[in-house]
């Protein structure tokens, strides 16, 4: 692939991404009222989508990644995001370098 077509490919992907970011708004503002079930579905969007971004790492990886995610999940019940991130990272490092998982 030459340089110019790479640039066009990137710009096409950027346009497609922007479409996804305005698309939902464009659709929803055409409706006058929001049915309660639709509202309930929209409220579930963040959890539903974000789950798909960690589930494969948990189920398809080894116990090093699983341990890191379990530790991070437990820590996140009490502590803010960066501490959770650090705890999970430390668990993965320990699992890989100390326990050879």
């Amino acid at each position: 692939m030459d340089d110019l077509s790479t640039v066009w490919l990137i710009l096409a992907a950027a346009a497609a991404t922007y479409l996804t970011r305005i698309g939902g708004y464009a659709l929803i503002t055409r409706m006058r009222t929001m049915p309660p079930r639709l509202e309930q579905a929209l409220n579930a969007v963040p959890a539903a989508v974000l789950t798909t971004l960690w589930a494969p790492a948990f189920f398809n990886s080894g116990w090093d990644v699983r341990l890191a995610l379990i530790v991070a999940a437990l820590v996140s019940l009490r502590y803010p995001g960066l501490i959770m991130l650090a705890a999970g990272w430390a668990a993965a490092m320990a699992a890989r370098h100390l326990f050879g998982l």
């Binding site: 974000l50 790492a57 995610l69 991070a72 990272w89």
Partner: peptide
């Protein structure tokens, strides 16, 4: 262990 940061981050948001 850079590869575990992204899933941990998303799990935390969930």
């Amino acid at each position: 262990a850079i590869d575990v940061l992204l899933p941990i981050y998303f799990l935390g948001l969930v």
